[in-house]
Each structure stands twice: as structure tokens, then as C-alpha cells.
């Protein structure tokens, strides 16, 4: 006789973990993400949720899902590799910034000061994971009638999607035009604005397969702490010595 044991949704567990950490009971904060490739179904919901949460413009993506196909017919398999920023312990993107516009914060997240960034794109080339993208100033409303017909200083945010601006780093960045974050390097920041408000990152909550986990690596009770101890754990390009804070369960 088998019985089905009630299993708590990992989101509930992680929400409890997050609350504990924010209350100062989980030890020093070191945010990490764990992605279970065996559970990822490649639905790209995390990519879309991230783009929506951060009001990402065209051509800027924080969390693409790479599809890998192996073998030849009929012995073919596929697997998916969501790729957020690795929030490396030793991030190669940070020391190359010539104007101190990016750094690793106390919680282990690599952040950018959009108002300092000069847009040299050195950090884009320095990241071995391609996790930084440049905001070239495009908007989903480009090409719509309201956007045409102005030679200089055309109104970048007239209606619809473009009116919703990036909430990153606890600041509303205003209408898209020439001002930051246009012209800047941009990247995943583990939805710090949500986390600080007690919410899990949008890629975590949107994951229909519950394949993405988030929490404080220093909290001995945290779900991510248990997962990072799994023998299935690997990190991308470990030989580079960047020590990513994103772990994959293979």
C-alpha cells in the first residue's frame, strides 16, 4: 500500500527561507540560485517573466534559455540551460569597468550604477557567460505611428509597454529616450528590488516546473543550501575561477 505524502511547494519553502533571511535569522546574506536542468521543460516562462518584471526593451535579455540538442535521430535528447547572471564570487566584469560603475554588493549580487556607466561595453566582453547586454535604446513602440516623423529627440515612450519603465535598483528610470539605462550595460540582478521587498525573483515564481531555486547560501535551513550540496551540482566554466553563485543540477 503506497501513500502519497503531501509535499510542500518549493515556492512556499523558499518564501519562508527568504523571510527568515530578511529577518536576519539566516546568517549573512549570500544569494544563490540553483537550476535543476532535469526539471526545466524549456518553456521560456522565466525569460518572459524577467523581461516583463524589468520592463526590458528589445534586444536586452537577462535570462535566456539555451536549448541543447544531443545525438542523432533516433537517439536524440534535449536539455535546457537557463542562463541568468552567474553573480560570480570573482566577477571578471567588475574589475574591467574603468569608472567604478559596477561592483559586487554585500549580498553577493553584481550590480550596476546606471548613472555612472559610460557604455564602453568592456564588461560585456569580459563576461565569459555573455550575461551582460547593452541597451541600445530601442522600444517595442518603435515604428508605430506615434513614434515616427521626428528627426531629433523623438518621444521614446508614447504609449503602452514603453510607458512602464525599469524598476531596477529601487528606482523608476523614467521614459525611454536618451537617459539611462539606455546606452548602459544591463544584466540580471536576481530581482533585488523584489527580494528586498520580500518577494522571490520573477524567474523563480514563474517557473512552472519548479526548476529554479533561490535563497541564502549561508542559511543552514535553506532549501538552496541543501541543493548546492547535491552530487549533481555543477557550475558553468568553473575552470575560469569565477566561482559562479548559480548552480546547476544536471
Amino acid at each position: 500500500m503506497s501513500t502519497i505524502l503531501p509535499v510542500e511547494d518549493p515556492l512556499v519553502t523558499m518564501q519562508r527561507d527568504l523571510k527568515r533571511t530578511l529577518e536576519g535569522k539566516g546568517g549573512p546574506i549570500a544569494w544563490v540560485m540553483v537550476i535543476d536542468q532535469a526539471k526545466c521543460i524549456g518553456c521560456h516562462a522565466c525569460t518572459v517573466a524577467c523581461a516583463s518584471e524589468n520592463a526590458l526593451p528589445p534586444g536586452v535579455v537577462y535570462r535566456p534559455v539555451i536549448e541543447e540538442e544531443k545525438g542523432t535521430y533516433p537517439n536524440v535528447s534535449r536539455r535546457f540551460l537557463p542562463r541568468p547572471c552567474m553573480q560570480c564570487q570573482k566577477p571578471p566584469c567588475v574589475p574591467v569597468c574603468p569608472v567604478s560603475a559596477t561592483w559586487k554588493d554585500d549580498a553577493g549580487v553584481v550590480v550596476i550604477d546606471y548613472n555612472k556607466c559610460i557604455g564602453c561595453r568592456f564588461c560585456l566582453k569580459a563576461c565569459p557567460y555573455g550575461a551582460r547586454t547593452s541597451d541600445f535604446g530601442e522600444a517595442y513602440t518603435d515604428g508605430t505611428p506615434d513614434q515616427e516623423g521626428r528627426l531629433l529627440g523623438r518621444k521614446a515612450a508614447a504609449a503602452g509597454y514603453a510607458e512602464r519603465t525599469a524598476p531596477e535598483y529601487d528606482k523608476e528610470w523614467g521614459a525611454r529616450g536618451r537617459r539611462s539605462p539606455v546606452g548602459n550595460a544591463r544584466k540580471c540582478h536576481f530581482c533585488l528590488h523584489r527580494v528586498q521587498a520580500g518577494m522571490l525573483p520573477s524567474c523563480v515564481t514563474s517557473c512552472v516546473g519548479r526548476a529554479t531555486f533561490f535563497g541564502n547560501a549561508n542559511d543552514p535551513q535553506a532549501l538552496v543550501r541543501k541543493l548546492t550540496g547535491s552530487p549533481r551540482v555543477m557550475r558553468l566554466k568553473e575552470h575560469l575561477g569565477t566561482e559562479p553563485h548559480v548552480y546547476y543540477l544536471t
Binding site: P98, V99, S100, K116, C117, I118, G119, F122, G183
Partner: peptide, 23 residues
């Protein structure tokens, strides 16, 4: 540059771990 008008940042907030700052 994405923001040429911020080139003064090379002077007010340089990071000398960057080869570009030395450049």
C-alpha cells in the same frame, strides 16, 4: 560610447583595476 557625456567619470570615479582606466 553609450554615454560620451560621462567621460568625466574617468577622472571622478576611476577604477585602476581596469586596463581601460590606464588607457
Amino acid at each position: 560610447l553609450g554615454h560620451w557625456e560621462r567621460m568625466y567619470r574617468f577622472i571622478v570615479s576611476p577604477s585602476f583595476t581596469s586596463p581601460m582606466a590606464w588607457m
